[in-house]
Amino acid sequence: MNQAATKKVAVVTGAGSGIGRAVSLALAADGFDVVMAGRRADALEQTRSMGPAERLHAMVTDVTSYDQVKALFDHVDQKFGRLDVLFNNAGRGAPAVPIEDLPVQTWLDVVNVNLNGMFFCAREAIALMKRQDPQGGRIINNGSISAHAPRPFSIAYTATKHAVTGLTKSIALDTRPYGIACTQIDIGNAATEMTDRMAKGILQADGSTRVEPRMDVNHVAQSVVQIVNFPLQTNVQFMTIMATNMPFVGRG
């Protein structure tokens, strides 16, 4: 076994805030070298300041740019010689408006981050995981409970998160001969800036507005740590983790 194989190396996208930040810190605490990708250098440095700085490595990356994504994984290869985990997390939403009022450019922007960006990262991670020694690794795609049931006026986010399920299944099927395991984690109402609006009241399918419960984002991070510590012979294909009392089962 080569020396690089003794290190545990992870890439986390969208690491400058929210779920990506929590997962980066949890993986670093678990002994991983974590390459944190995100668009804002200041946000990545803030994440780095919150954990073991020697194991948190920031690299400004816009996942909608294939060239920047390739540079990210080339850097990982050159610095560490391998990749054990990709947490494919970067994502964005769109304003809650009727379908005909959603700007086409907004639709394209959401697709570029939530689907194209996730594919770009998976593509480069898989290529590295196939050629490294020992071969293999783990990819965890951040889906959403919106991969199963939409919120009102969320067509761009919902459509892309449904597409993530197809991406996850295809990766799991096509890469299993190479020791690569692929998971989709569907998260409901983790307490981050993105879900602050839930605590103030959010539109429901029946037309009412209700406050929704949220859960500690660190519970999501600990779930990711649990998954990555399974041997590659074991995969959690799909996981749903959510605030117990939020409307999901029976939504609408």
Rank of each mutant, 00 (worst) to 15 (best):
R123P: 04
A149V: 15
Q68C: 03
R92Y: 07
K79Y: 01
A205L: 11
A191D: 14
P152G: 04
T168S: 15
L27Y: 09
Q184N: 15
P150T: 13
G51Y: 09
A43N: 13
N189S: 15
R151M: 10
D84T: 01
K8T: 07
S170Q: 13
R251L: 15
R39K: 13
F153L: 13
N89A: 10
Q132G: 08
D133M: 12
T13C: 05
G20S: 08
D109Y: 09
H57R: 02
S223T: 15
A41P: 01
F248C: 06
K200I: 00
A159L: 06
V113G: 01
R197Y: 15
A71T: 05
T195A: 04
T209K: 11
A28M: 07
G14N: 09
I171Y: 08
N245V: 00
R197I: 14
F87P: 00
F230N: 12
A41K: 12
L72Y: 07
N88K: 08
V9G: 01
T195N: 09
N142Y: 10
I140S: 00
G51V: 01
A53V: 00
H148D: 10
S65C: 08
Q184Y: 10
R82F: 01
A199P: 14
M50V: 06
A26F: 06
T240W: 11
Q46Y: 06
R55H: 03
A96T: 06
G51K: 05
Q184K: 10
I227L: 07
L27Q: 03
R48K: 15
F32E: 00
I185N: 03
A159Y: 08
A41I: 08
S49R: 14
Q78A: 13
I126A: 11
A96V: 02
Q204F: 02
A94F: 10
P52C: 11
K200A: 12
